[in-house]
């Protein structure tokens, strides 16, 4: 493996007494789409902010492009494209001006910027809105503009902090499509998300974070194989039966997860599990059998559902 683009060893971030990132290690290679998966407050954004050099490191070691963020932040940022969790587009400027000025912040010549703006507006499907102020744009458009803005300087590494949170399904799919294209073109992406499907679709490799720690690492497929049995049976019981259901199903071997509205059973043989339920007379109201997904890995690892 060549030298990693980003490398963290014992990377730690504290806010006062609060430990946001707790001694994490990871390597991100050039050309890969790397994901940070975790619930809100897991430390994903804090990690991103340290990589983008806008948040000082409390302890540990971090290199980005082999450079030290503490002393070479400017050089690092020169080669980054950043999509923050909350859009911070320049509301006093138009769509095209937002792209233009970010090119200038990166010291790009005006002619290069103009060429790039045309390409990026097309990429973001905003060509007909170039002279529009930012304010009236829809959430999806603003997000696409923020991504286009991150790409203006043709960065070596693009960091996307929850790129599709809060978007409707159409907008999400359009964004995913754009991110695929970026990936195909060889960009290195770092994506944080709490959407399993997003991680499964976009990430070559990911880490699962919980309470500031990395609890698992691998490709989506590896993680599923390693942490979740082959099949998942979702059982729905009437509300009055949900109480104490955990104990009554405690004998199940692969492990169970009791959620607010259903019980998730991990198993290698769904049919046998269902048979057992019939014998013991704990028949659910509704049964759904499916292949295990990254979400199941997540629930197993962090023991809670992703309610947001």
């Amino acid at each position: 493996m060549s030298e990693p683009l980003v490398q963290a060893r014992g990377l730690t971030k504290k806010f006062g007494d609060f430990l946001a990132v707790d001694a994490v290690d990871f390597d991100i290679a050039k050309g890969e789409a790397f994901g940070f998966l975790g619930p809100n407050g897991a430390g994903k954004t804090s990690t991103m902010k340290m990589i983008t050099t806008v948040s000082p490191i409390t302890e540990g070691k971090l290199t980005v492009f082999g450079l030290d963020p503490t002393v070479e932040g400017r050089q690092i940022r020169q080669r980054l494209g950043v999509v923050p969790q909350e859009d911070n587009l320049d509301m006093e400027l138009t769509v095209a001006e937002n792209l233009y000025i970010y090119g200038r912040y990166h010291d790009m010549p005006r002619a290069d910027i103009r060429r790039r703006i045309t390409e990026l507006l097309e990429f973001a499907q905003l060509s007909d809105r170039s002279e529009s102020p930012v304010e009236p744009l829809s959430g999806g458009m603003k997000r696409r503009l923020t991504i286009a803005r991150a790409l203006i300087s043709d960065p070596d590494l693009v960091i996307l902090d929850e790129p599709t949170t809060g978007l409707d399904p159409q907008a999400r799919h359009l964004l995913w499509d754009r991110l695929y294209r970026l990936k195909r073109e060889g960009a290195t992406l770092i994506i944080t998300t709490h959407y399993m499907d997003e991680a499964e679709q976009l990430c070559d490799r990911l880490v699962v974070m919980d309470k500031g720690k990395i609890v698992a690492e691998g490709s989506p497929r590896q993680l599923i194989a390693q942490y979740a049995p082959r099949e998942v049976v979702e059982l729905r019981y009437p509300e009055e039966q949900m109480e104490g259901i955990g104990e009554r199903l405690g004998w199940l071997e692969g492990g169970i997860e009791v959620l607010a509205d259903r019980v998730i059973v991990y198993t290698d043989d769904a049919e046998a599990t269902q048979h057992e339920l019939t014998i013991r007379d704990i028949q659910p109201e509704q049964v759904l059998v499916r292949r295990s997904s990254l979400e199941d890995v997540f629930l197993k690892l962090t023991g809670r559902s992703l309610v947001d």
Partner: peptide, 18 residues
């Protein structure tokens, strides 16, 4: 306005600007 409401500077600081 730019600092607290529009977060304009948060964005600018992810570029080589300081």
């Amino acid at each position: 306005f730019r600092l607290k409401f529009e977060k304009t500077y948060d964005g600018i600081l992810t570029t080589p600007m300081s």
